[in-house]
């Protein structure tokens, strides 16, 4: 029997109850509240039985570290969207696509998933393959192949995923 973290179960219960209340919007109908608690209890029993309660399925403890990262990410998305939009709207469009390998990766699984998703979210760079020690990235313009930018993003991802000392 694997150890099941109680704090994950409590966090999951809180999130599920909040989700039900937000989506239904009725606080004074006893029938709906009973149905909601039944659904929450059923979901909790299922997740415990499937043994998927861990930091990956209940990532809400990373939430407070995620907020500054998301703000930084939105600013980066804004900057690169302006560049890509200007490129698309020019009548004589000049593209310099490149396929590069990024070797700097966060060490935890959550950090890697966050890193690859962030690369894809930023217009101009798309992660097209993820391997054990590298990400293959397709970039639309050669200005976006700067290794330092990717290392900076990987460092911030590692911090947001809760790693103590990023390796770079």
């Amino acid at each position: 029997m694997r150890y099941i973290g109680v704090r994950y179960i409590i966090a999951l219960i809180i999130v599920l109850v909040t989700l039900w209340l937000v989506l239904s919007g009725y606080f004074n109908k006893p029938l709906l509240l009973w149905l909601g608690s039944a659904s929450v209890i059923f979901t909790i029993i299922l997740t415990i039985r499937m043994r998927i309660i861990d930091n990956e399925s209940v990532p809400y403890f990373n939430l407070f570290r995620m907020v500054p990262y998301l703000v930084w990410l939105v600013v980066e998305i804004w900057k690169s969207t302006i560049i890509i939009s200007a490129t698309i709207l020019r009548p004589d469009m000049v593209l310099t696509p490149r396929l590069i390998r990024v070797k700097t990766l966060p060490s935890s699984g959550f950090g890697r998933a966050l890193f690859a998703n962030s690369i894809t979210l930023t217009p101009g760079t798309v992660s097209i393959d993820l391997d054990d020690d590298e990400v293959i990235v397709h970039t639309l313009l050669k200005e976006m192949t700067n290794r330092g930018d990717f290392a900076e993003m990987a460092r911030r991802c590692a911090i947001a995923a809760g790693e103590k000392e990023p390796a770079f």
Binding site: W78, I84, S85, I88, P123
Partner: peptide, 29 residues
Amino acid sequence: CFMLIGSIGVLRLPDFYARIHAAGITDTL
């Protein structure tokens, strides 16, 4: 406006991998 720019890009860019970037504008900003 950004969504329109993304759609124009999906229609205009020459390569499949390039069109992904234009679709990304719609998805994010």
